[in-house]
């Protein structure tokens, strides 16, 4: 008895292969769809913004006059914000990761912290903004200063640093630790002198990515109540401030009133994207340079 009718199979084969080919091109098109949008977005922003970028735009003060406006204030704000976010997230993030990977016993507390971190990563950024508003701005009465914004942002990007550091620490081979113990080193000496140096590239890469997330984030800072006012350049963490994404936000919504503001927003976007691009390149370079060391 014949189970397979070979002529029937042969007749259908052509269509099946054709459908397969068709599907492949559709799948390919949807893959490059995102990239096409990316190109359009970049082209759009560049063509609108690039001619507005000059030395005066980068170093100038904010101004209601579009021709005189500069972004030094928001740039300095972003810089100062990072001076708070970078050390705070590094200490908290790496500390948490070391605890979870090297010290914690596999018990309830450890899994509570772990689950908690993955859930925190899913909390909308605007909710962190409300937390910052309630705890730092109003609760501690800091006001909407750089320190308050920085602490809020630190909590927001903390899960990214923790997860990246955990992965980096987990990737350190066990025999390195054992060799260190064999030499008579204590646990902390092993962590400090063996595990940390070996996992540093991974930790740095994760931290830079977390920082670039913090640089681009807008919503939590809007919630902190940072106004669209022209304020003096910040020069310490207790100053009031604005940052690049916030300035882009205010220029974008005000472009309904003054057309040129849309161009200013585009120009500021170009600078913001360049900044992020530079940071991500550094992350990639670190990753590639140290990848083969172990």
């Amino acid at each position: 008895m014949k189970h397979v009718d070979s002529t029937q199979v042969q007749n259908r084969m052509g269509t099946r292969l054709l459908i397969n080919k068709l599907a492949k091109s559709i799948f390919f098109l949807s893959t490059i769809f995102g990239l096409i949008v990316l190109v359009i977005l970049m082209y759009r922003v560049l063509s609108q913004g690039v001619e507005w970028i000059d030395w005066q735009f980068i170093t100038g003060k904010l101004s209601t006059m579009a021709e005189n406006a500069g972004v030094m204030g928001p740039l300095l704000g972003t810089f100062w914000l990072m001076l708070v976010v970078a050390p705070v997230t590094l200490i908290l993030g790496v500390g948490t990761a070391i605890y979870l990977e090297e010290y914690a016993k596999k018990n309830r507390l450890q899994s509570l912290i772990q689950t908690n971190i993955s859930n925190l990563a899913g909390v909308p950024s605007i909710v962190f903004g409300l937390l910052g508003l309630t705890v730092f701005v109003k609760g501690m009465n800091l006001g909407n200063i750089i320190l308050a914004g920085g602490l809020t942002m630190s909590l927001l990007v903390l899960p990214i640093v923790v997860v990246a550091s955990q992965e980096a620490i987990r990737a350190v081979p066990q025999y390195l630790r054992e060799a260190s113990y064999g030499m008579g080193a204590t646990k902390w000496q092993t962590v400090k002198n063996v595990v940390m140096p070996a996992s540093l590239p991974g930790i740095l890469t994760g931290s830079i990515l977390a920082l670039s997330r913090a640089i681009g984030e807008t919503a939590p800072l809007v919630v902190l109540g940072i106004p669209a006012l022209i304020i003096p350049f910040p020069d310490n963490i207790f100053d009031k401030f604005t940052v690049m994404p916030l300035q882009i936000y205010y220029w974008t919504i005000d472009s309904a009133l003054v057309d040129e503001y849309a161009n200013l927003a585009a120009a500021a976007i170009v600078i913001l994207l360049l900044l992020l691009f530079a940071m991500n390149s550094i992350a990639v370079i670190i990753r590639n340079k140290f990848q083969k060391r172990l």
Partner: peptide, 9 residues
């Protein structure tokens, strides 16, 4: 990796 504010714009 593009900030959401850029998408908003």
């Amino acid at each position: 990796g593009i900030p959401t504010i850029v998408y908003g714009f």
